[in-house]
């Protein structure tokens, strides 16, 4: 269209004619105005949709290729379950988070707090012949839940540790509460925390260096001119109220 490329799908237009050096700002603005005119004109040529709103039109598929703004995210290592699922060919199914609860006649979450299968506030339980006399089925339910949570937490920790590439010390407690970055840092500290400060460590470890965070003087001392101005400002402020 006369040197103007209009991509209605992405609502963009571009004047592809070359720009000459002697072109003034006015002429450039004229170019912009002209291309926008084409864009708006193109929009109105689209078939109108019959709906309650009068000026509703469906945009075609965009064809212009726009580069990515951010770098492609790095691939995270697979968790233990994901590795297993890959081998077995288990695919993730999308499941609803809520399900209809017949007894209470309302939608309830399938898992977690106030979930359908949450046995914590059940008043009557079916008899289990495997129970020993004196054992409470209610306590057993609670115990089971506690164990499931604990084992899940352990798995989370393990996955997080594999996220930070380094081997972690065995005493890194509650890794699930710390970010993988801070874990990585503590792993580095541990790896060079020996008598030779990591000098005689073998392999990868020996090359690790902690990035030092030295405080720069520049931050605490501002340039003289700025300081003088600030001082005069303070003096004048004080004298104003004097």
């Amino acid at each position: 269209m006369d040197g103007v490329e209009v991509d209605l799908g992405s609502l963009s237009c571009a004047d592809v004619r070359p720009i000459f050096q002697e072109e003034t700002k006015q002429e450039l603005e004229e170019r912009i105005r002209r291309s926008v005119e084409f864009l708006v004109h193109g929009l109105f040529t689209l078939p109108e949709q019959s709906s309650e709103r009068k000026s509703q039109r469906e945009l075609p598929e965009p064809f212009s290729v726009i580069p990515r703004a951010k770098p492609i995210p790095k691939e995270k290592p697979l968790t233990k379950w994901e590795q297993f699922a890959k081998i077995r060919g288990i695919r993730k199914r999308k499941r609803d988070k809520f399900a209809w609860d017949e007894g209470r006649a309302e939608f309830r979450p399938i898992h977690g707090y106030r979930s359908i299968n949450d046995g914590s506030n059940q008043v009557i339980l079916p008899h289990d012949p495997s129970l020993e006399p004196g054992e409470s089925p209610f306590d057993l339910l609670k115990e089971g839940k506690r164990k499931r949570i604990a084992s899940n937490r352990k798995n989370q920790e393990r996955n997080k540790r594999s996220l930070s590439k380094n081997q972690l010390p065995t005493h890194a407690l509650r890794a699930d509460k710390r970010s993988s970055k801070s874990l990585e840092r503590s792993a580095k500290i541990v790896s060079i925390s020996n008598r030779s400060l990591g000098k005689h460590e073998e392999g990868k470890k020996s090359k690790q260096k902690l990035s030092s965070t030295k405080r720069s003087l520049k931050k605490s001392i501002i340039p003289n001119g700025v300081e003088r101005e600030r001082t005069f400002q303070a003096v004048n402020d004080v004298l104003k109220n004097f």
Binding site: I221, R230, T231, A234, V235, D237, L239
Partner: peptide
């Protein structure tokens, strides 16, 4: 060692102004 902030400068000068106006 660091510069005084604007607030600190104000406090210092207010005190000194009591002596030397």
């Amino acid at each position: 060692m660091r510069n005084l902030t604007e607030e600190e400068l104000r406090v210092v000068f207010e005190k000194l102004a009591k002596f030397i106006g």
